[in-house]
C-alpha cells in the first residue's frame, strides 16, 4: 500500500513538473486528488485494512495528497506570476500607434458643475472674476484673518477637519476674501466657487464635503443697498423667475453688518408649507459688508476701501434645482445618479 502511494506521488510530481499550463495543472489535480482521483480512491479502500494498518496508511495517504496539492499550488502561482510578468512586459506594444476614436455615447456634467456654471456666468456678465483657491488652508486664512481669533465661539459653528501638520481643510470659501485682496489691486469684484469641508457625520442633509460659492466686491463706497440689488439679480438669474428676498441680522465675524438672506418660498409662494417649515421663507445665504478688520487683514486700508461679501451653497442649490433629496448622492460616484444630468455647457 505505502509503496503504491509513493508511486502515485512520484507520478503526480512528474506530471506537475511537465505541466505547461493552468489547464494541464487542473487535470493533474483532478486525476489524483479529485473526487474520483487515484489518491482519493485509495483512501476509500482503507476500510478493508486492519485498524493499526489503517492508521498508518491513512496518514500516508493524506500526506501524499497534501504534497501533491502543495506542488500544484506552487506551480499555479508560478504560472500566475509568469502570466503577470508576461502581461507587464510587452515590448512590442507601441504606445505611439494611431488612436482609436471611442464610439459615441452621451456624456453628462455633475449637477454641482451645472449650477456652478450658471452662477459663474451671471457674475462674469457683470464683470466679476472667477477665482479658485486652496482647499487645504492655514488657520490664519480660514479663521484668524477673518476676525475669528482662537477661542472664538464662532469656531464652534464650523466643525473643522484638522491636519496633523496644524493646517486645516477650509470650512468655508471665505479664505478667498483674504487671498483675492492680496492678489488683486482694488477695486475689483470676484467670486470663488469650490469645495469646503465640515467635520460632521453624513446623513440625508449633511455631508462633510460640499460646494459653496463666495463672492466679494471691493470698492470705495459700497452699501447694503448695492448688496441687496446684486443678490436679487443673482437669485433671479439662477431660479429664472422673479424672487422676493429679505435680509435679517446674522452674525458672522467677518462681516459688519452681517445678514442672513431669506428667499420667499418658491414652493408655496410664501403661504407656508413643509419646505419652508411653514414660515413662508427659506434661509438661503449669509452676506454682509466686509468687516474693517478683514479689509485690513487683506492688506487694504479700511478707511479707503470697503466691500461686501456673500456665500452661497452650490450643493444646496443643486438639490433645490433638481429636487435631490439625499445629499450623499453628490459624492457617490454612482452613474445611475450622475448620468441623469445632461444639461450644461454653454448657455
Amino acid at each position: 500500500m505505502i509503496e503504491e502511494i509513493k508511486k502515485l506521488v512520484e507520478e503526480a510530481m512528474e506530471l506537475i513538473e511537465k505541466a505547461q499550463s493552468l489547464d494541464e495543472l487542473a487535470a493533474v489535480d483532478l486525476e489524483y486528488s479529485g473526487k474520483k482521483g487515484k489518491l482519493t480512491a485509495l483512501l476509500k479502500t482503507l476500510g478493508l485494512l486492519a485498524p493499526d494498518e489503517r492508521k498508518i496508511v491513512g496518514q500516508a495517504c493524506n500526506n501524499a495528497k497534501n504534497t501533491v496539492s502543495e506542488s500544484i499550488d506552487k506551480k499555479r502561482s508560478y504560472f500566475n506570476d509568469q502570466a503577470i510578468a508576461r502581461e507587464l512586459d510587452v515590448p512590442s506594444f507601441d504606445p505611439t500607434l494611431p488612436s482609436i476614436p471611442p464610439g459615441t455615447t452621451t456624456g453628462s456634467y455633475h449637477p454641482v458643475s451645472v449650477v456652478q456654471a450658471s452662477v459663474e456666468r451671471v457674475f462674469e456678465q457683470m464683470g466679476f472674476k472667477i477665482l479658485d483657491y486652496y482647499e487645504a488652508e492655514s488657520d490664519w486664512f480660514n479663521f484668524e484673518g477673518l476676525n475669528i481669533p482662537k477661542d472664538h465661539p464662532a469656531r464652534d459653528m464650523q466643525d473643522t477637519f484638522w491636519m496633523k501638520s496644524g493646517n486645516l481643510l477650509r470650512t468655508h470659501t471665505s479664505p478667498g476674501q483674504l487671498r483675492s485682496m492680496k492678489e488683486f489691486e482694488p477695486p475689483f469684484r470676484a467670486i470663488f466657487p469650490g469645495r469646503v469641508f465640515r467635520y460632521e457625520r453624513t446623513d440625508a442633509s449633511h455631508e462633510h464635503t460640499f460646494h459653496q460659492v463666495e463672492g466679494i466686491m471691493i470698492d470705495k463706497n459700497l452699501s447694503v443697498s448695492n448688496l441687496i440689488a446684486i443678490m436679487k439679480i443673482l437669485l433671479e438669474a439662477i431660479f429664472e423667475r422673479e424672487v422676493t428676498i429679505r435680509l435679517r441680522p446674522g452674525y458672522f465675524p467677518f462681516v459688519e453688518p452681517g445678514f442672513e438672506l431669506d428667499i420667499q418660498c418658491m414652493t408655496c409662494g410664501g403661504g407656508g408649507c413643509p419646505v419652508c417649515k411653514h414660515s413662508g421663507w427659506v434661509e438661503l445665504l449669509p452676506c454682509g459688508l466686509i468687516h474693517p478688520n478683514v479689509i485690513r487683514a487683506g492688506g487694504l486700508d479700511p478707511t479707503q476701501w470697503n466691500g461686501w461679501a456673500f456665500g452661497l451653497g452650490l450643493t444646496r442649490l443643486a438639490m433645490m434645482k433638481y429636487k435631490i433629496n439625499h445629499i450623499t448622492h453628490f459624492m457617490s460616484g454612482d452613474l445611475r445618479f450622475l448620468s441623469q444630468f445632461k444639461a450644461g455647457g454653454a448657455k
Partner: peptide, 20 residues
C-alpha cells in the same frame, strides 16, 4: 471649462466628484 465640455459633449464622458 474646455476640457469638461470636450469630455462631456464630444467624447461622451460623465463627470464625477470624489472625496479629497
Amino acid at each position: 471649462r474646455k476640457t469638461s465640455d470636450i469630455l462631456t459633449l464630444e467624447l461622451g464622458f460623465s463627470e464625477v466628484m470624489n472625496y479629497s
